[in-house]
Amino acid sequence: MKILILGGSKSGKSSTGQELCRRLAQGPLIYWATMEPCDSEDEARIVRHIEDRDGMGFETIEKGRNIRDAQVPADSTIMFDAVTALLANEMFGKGCVDRDAGLRVIEDLADLSGRCSNIVCVCDEIWRDGTVYDETTELYRRELALVCRKLAESFDVVGEVCCGIVKCYKGSLNEILD
């Protein structure tokens, strides 16, 4: 099963995704972390996330770009956290703006979702404010939305998390969560 989970920051996307993965898994559980830490705040956040999932049975893959290079077992269930950081790394990681990053992320995530048994991709919802951004930030926002809409077309479930509660826009999680 392929699930896309959207929501604001600290809305409960990761914990919801982890729970879905644990219930879906019939093989190895993989937590795919995409954040490339750039300061002590990021490092502290990573430690907190690792503690959060301690004892849940996840094996961690830390890979924030070129995700095609990592092998995963065909029967694995992947918690992919998150599309937001993957696109940022692919778009800005080389020190200049890579305008093709969005298309590459779409292809790479489609490829990854075909190589495992289940995948839950989480992504931050960043499109409902009135800020007029600079051209580069606006490109990132547009491409992130396109990645999500493209994934949403082929995925089985599309949901929005708010306060840890999921509302489904496509498909249903009732059978998994009940």
């Binding site: 409902r128 939305a145 809409r149």
Partner: peptide, 8 residues
């Protein structure tokens, strides 16, 4: 209505 780039 909806956020930016949502396919409205």
């Amino acid at each position: 209505i909806g956020g930016s780039y949502q396919g409205k």
